[in-house]
Each structure stands twice: as structure tokens, then as C-alpha cells.
Design a protein around this nucleic acid. Structure first.
Lengths: 329, 329
DNA sequence: CTGAAAGCGCTTACAG
DNA sequence: CTGAAAGCGCTTACAG
């Protein structure tokens, strides 16, 4: 069942069917249009997007590459991308790399062969210069979320401002011994958060203390173990570079009988699902992830036709105060 | 840059290029093959899947429709589908319906126009007979996850056995007043869980007590409010039809100073991310969601060519005992 | 082993 | 306002 069948059924040429189905401003006599629409309905005709894409050189499809959709950080981003895409009549193909180079390359190949109109790459940790070059050759734009890469478009929050804000919040409550559990220091976003933490300390007239900084790996367990060591140096507040580690910090404190926030305050980062759980109720930094996904998709579509200089869009972080922060004793 | 360019570069016909690129067992002289592969590399040629799909009548793409990827139940399913798909060189287009009929229809249209080879629909609550018929017309299979629908392929856990097992676990610990917070009773999976709960009570020689059963909506809040009422009837254990409500139950008990599991035990359902959090550490029923996604994709691919009777695949639930269950006082 | 040619299902100048 | 025809980039009988 194709356009030829519809044309025969309606007694017109396939050109006319095409014009009616595409519903552009091309002039078609009202009666003819009706006849075609009737045939379309009777036959349940749906134009083949493959044929269309072949001709028009665009597929109304974009790729979304994430490290791992099962990580609670990514689903909101995916939703944002997908929401915006479907509003623009685009479809989204998604891919999980598990941060493995071989998988990334496999997906880049797949997406390229499918001639997606562009791709969005969320999350850091893997090298995507390969992808950027390959897509550039095809004239398809690439937008990164949560990382900035020289020469690429990107959407991310202002990590420096966010971490500065979290630190300032704690300082304003009266804390002077503020510890920080970082994420993997190879990530630019983590480096930025560390810089923001440092800036926050300075702004509050507090000194930097190496012993109060521990590198984590974004896993709950690493927040737990980092806290074990940090407790030796008696911080009154612990800032974790993501919520999951924040939950680990909370765990360790409760296991030790340290009350939160009376004895020690905690601030997380991301405002994922888990921070909002009544049981954890973690004060945290909100990253508008759905918004970021949406922005990335829009940025992508704007770049579809036209080589433009790299655009870097910063979104606004905001502090969400819940039950894990209060003044020190 | 297309197959013609490669053919010119290698000094052969496009037919030969096609044969080499597709690397099937069609005989090509080794030197010729080399010459073509060189040209492919030099030019960075990637065959256009649109043209291929148009000819071969298959796109190596499947659709995945979920209510809401941001709901922690779905990402694992999505990963399972995607993992299996990429292993089979398939791509996955994903769609969120928010359980809205208009969105569902929009996606069904989109996927049909893209000529996906089949679709997987996860989650209940919306009517998809429309989709089933439309896809049937195109000869594309549909597989449901987590719901059984007369006439469709499906993958789900044995909800009856799962709920029976949870109830048996509590009864074995010595509980005799076991309450149940259901999900929306319109869902067949919830009806099955209720049946399993009833069967579990009977098997343990316990009677049914209407006052110990409350309908929830799968939200954390509804677990909280249901518990408020249930407490009047002094249950020693509360079984919730999903983890999120289980967390709500836990909340309410803690707010009332009821100790878990010393005073009241709790069992959740799904074994989502949140049940594993150290803080919640909820005894729950594991649904092998990633496995279910994988199974669904495989079931789909097996049905690609060939109308077969509906296949219903049941996966094995398992009890994950954590810290919210123990003997009654 | 290799190539010329038809054709997948559309869109879009071009002609009328 | 309508249609005939070319062409998007491939695969695949068919012929040699």
C-alpha cells in the first residue's frame, strides 16, 4: 500500500497525492483534495518516511547518546530531549555507551548510517572527538550536555556558581569546617564544582584545608567511605558533588550516631529523584535536567542548516533546601 | 558522497561496491575487494540506511513506548531493550506517552511512518488496541511488557506468584495481620498482585480482612496516607504493591515512632533503585526488568517474519530480603 | 567474478 | 490546478 495505490483509488496522479498529504500551500482544487483525503482514509495510507528522507536529505530523527539510562541522572535529560523532539515532530534514537569506547563508536556508526539529522551527547568521561569529526563531515550538528568541549555546542549548568552557592549556603548558616566530596576529577564539571567550592570558601573568608577534600566516584559507597575519613577532621558540614554520594554521607553519619543536621549538615548535587525522597530529604543543587534536554534539542535544530560558531548555553542552578542543612551546634 | 563516488574511485560498478560493503558470501575477486575497501576508507563512505531500508523493507529499528522514562520503573526496561537491540544491530526509538491517548496515537503514527520493524509497549493504563491493529496492518509485531492483552505477545513477571511469595514470607515470619496497599485496581498486574496476596493469606491459613486492604496510586504519598488508616487496625506487616508506596509506608511509620521491622514489617514490589538505598533498604520483590526488556526485544525479532499465535512469556519474580522485614513482636 | 538496469516510494522542478 | 518524469542511494535478479 503506497502512494500509487492512493493515486489510483482517488483517480489522480501521485504528484497530487503527495501535495495533498503534505498539506503545504501548493494549490489543489478542493474537490480533488477531498477525493484524495478520502482515499487516504479508506486505505489507511501512511507515507513512507524512508523514501521521503532519501529525497529531502533529512530524517526528522536525532540520536541521543548517554552513558547509562539506568543512572538516575539521565532519564530526566532523555525526557527533555524527547519532549522537545516530539513537539517538533522529531523522533529520538537512544544509545547507552556504558562509557565504553567501542560502544560509542558502534553507535556513532549506526546513527550516521541512519542519517540522523544530528546528535546529542550527554555525560562526560568518554572521548567523542571521533564522533564530532564524523558528524561534521556529514554536516550534522552535535550538542553536548553537561560538558564543554572546545569546538562544540553545549548545554550545562554553571557548575562553578552552583558549588559556590552551596558553599555559601553552608557558610551563611555559620559553618566554618565545610568538607567536600568531589566526583571523578577528570571531569570538567567536577573541576568546576571544586573551583566553585573554593570560591565559596574564599568569599566567606574561610581557608582551604586539603584534609577536608576527598575524591569520590559518584557512587553511594564512595560518599560513605569518604565520610569515614572526613570525620577525623571534624567538619560540621559536608558538601557532596552528587546526590548519591550525599546519600552515602548521610548513611555513614547515621551509622555513627551523628545527627543530621544538628551535628553535621549535608548538601548534595543534581536534585535527582532520590534527594526528594522523604527519607533522605537532601538539601541539594537543582540541575534543570529536563530543561537542559529540551534546550539541547532546540539548539540542535537551530544548527541544522548552517555552520555556526560553537554555542555554549548555561542554565541556572538553584539551591533546594530540605532537611539535611541547619546551623552548626 | 555515495556509492557512485566509491565505485568511481575504485574503478568498479556500484553493484560490486554494494557486494563488498555488505560482505555477504557473494563472490568478489580478492584484489577487487581490496580496491573497494580502500576507496571506502579513503572516502569515509557509510551506506545510506534509508535507501537500504526502502529496498529491503526493513529498517533495523524498533519503537519503545513507555508512559514515562522519568519513572524509576522504566529505565531498566529501556536498557534491556536497547542492550539486546544493539547486539542485534537494531536501533531503538523511544517515546513517552504520559499515559495520554493523544500522545500514544501521535507516536504510533510516527513509528509507522518510519516503518519501524516492530514496537514494544511497556506499562499499562492506556488503550493500545488502536496501535495493535495499525501495526498488524503493516505486518509489524507488537510486544507488551508488564501487561497481558488478549491477542498480543507479552513479557511479564508472574504477579500472582510474586505477591503470594511476599505474603508467604511475612506469614512465615509469624505475621498474622498482613495489610496490603494495592496499586490502581484497573491494572491487570495489580489485580494479579491482589489475587496473589489473597492466595498467600489462604495458604497460611489466614483470613481476608477488608480493613487491611487499601487502594494506592503507586505514588509515595499514597503509601503514606494508606498507612495512616491501616494503623487503626494494627497490622504487624504491610505489603505495598510497589517500592515507592513502600517508602511512603516507611515514612509514615517513622513519623509515628513505629519501629521497622520490630513493630511493623514492610515489603515493597519491583526492586527499583530506591529499595536498594541503604537508608530505605526495603525488602521487596525483584522484577528482572532489564531481562524483561531483553526478552521483549528478542520475542519481537523472532516474530518479524511470521504471524504466530500470541506468546506470553512469564519471568521469575524473586524475594529480596533487606532490613524492613522481621518477626512480629 | 562483474556490470547494466530495474525498482523501492516518495518529492519536486518542469510543462501544460 | 494537474500530471509525466527525473532522481534520492541503494540492492538484486539477470545477463554475460
Amino acid at each position: 500500500m503506497n502512494i500509487t495505490d492512493v493515486a489510483r483509488e482517488a483517480g489522480v496522479s501521485i504528484a497530487t497525492v503527495s501535495r495533498v498529504v503534505n498539506n503545504n500551500d501548493y494549490p489543489v482544487r478542493p474537490e480533488t483534495r477531498e477525493r484524495v483525503l478520502d482515499a487516504v482514509r479508506r486505505l489507511g495510507f501512511r507515507p513512507n518516511d524512508l523514501a521521503r528522507g532519501l529525497l529531502q536529505k533529512r530524517t526528522r530523527t536525532v540520536g541521543l547518546i548517554v552513558p547509562d539510562l539506568a543512572n538516575p541522572y539521565y532519564p530526566e535529560i532523555a525526557r527533555g530531549v524527547e519532549d522537545a523532539a516530539s513537539a517538533e515532530l522529531y523522533a529520538v534514537v537512544f544509545c547507552n555507551t556504558d562509557r565504553r569506547a567501542d560502544k560509542s563508536e558502534h553507535y556513532v556508526d549506526t546513527l550516521l548510517q541512519k542519517r540522523v539529522d544530528g546528535i546529542i551527547i550527554a555525560g562526560g568521561g568518554t572521548d567523542f572527538t571521533h564522533a564530532s569529526t564524523a558528524f561534521a563531515e556529514f554536516g550534522a550538528p552535535v550538542v553536548f550536555i553537561g560538558r564543554h568541549r572546545a569546538g562544540g555546542h553545549s548545554v550545562q549548568i554553571d557548575n562553578v556558581a552552583a558549588a559556590r552557592g552551596a558553599t555559601a549556603h553552608l557558610a551563611a548558616l555559620g559553618h566554618r569546617e565545610i568538607a567536600f566530596v568531589t566526583g571523578p576529577l577528570t571531569l570538567t564539571s567536577v573541576q568546576d564544582r571544586l573551583a566553585g567550592y573554593r570560591a565559596g570558601l574564599e568569599a566567606a573568608g574561610l581557608g582551604w584545608d586539603d584534609r577536608l577534600v576527598r575524591e569520590g566516584d559518584f557512587g553511594e559507597r564512595s560518599g560513605y567511605t569518604a565520610t569515614q575519613e572526613l570525620l577525623k577532621h571534624k567538619p560540621t558540614a559536608i558538601f557532596a558533588a552528587n546526590d548519591l554520594m550525599g546519600a552515602g554521607v548521610l548513611d555513614r553519619l547515621e551509622d555513627d550516631g551523628v545527627r543530621v543536621p544538628q551535628d553535621v549538615s549535608i548538601v548534595g548535587f543534581d536534585n535527582t529523584f532520590l534527594a526528594a525522597l522523604h527519607h533522605i530529604s537532601l538539601t541539594t543543587i537543582n540541575q534543570p535536567r529536563r530543561e537542559m534536554g529540551r534546550l539541547a534539542l532546540e539548539l540542535l535544530l537551530e544548527r541544522l542548516d548552517g555552520r555556526t560558531a560553537p554555542v555554549r548555553r548555561l542554565t541556572e542552578p538553584s539551591l533546594v533546601v530540605r532537611d539535611t542543612t541547619g546551623p552548626p551546634r
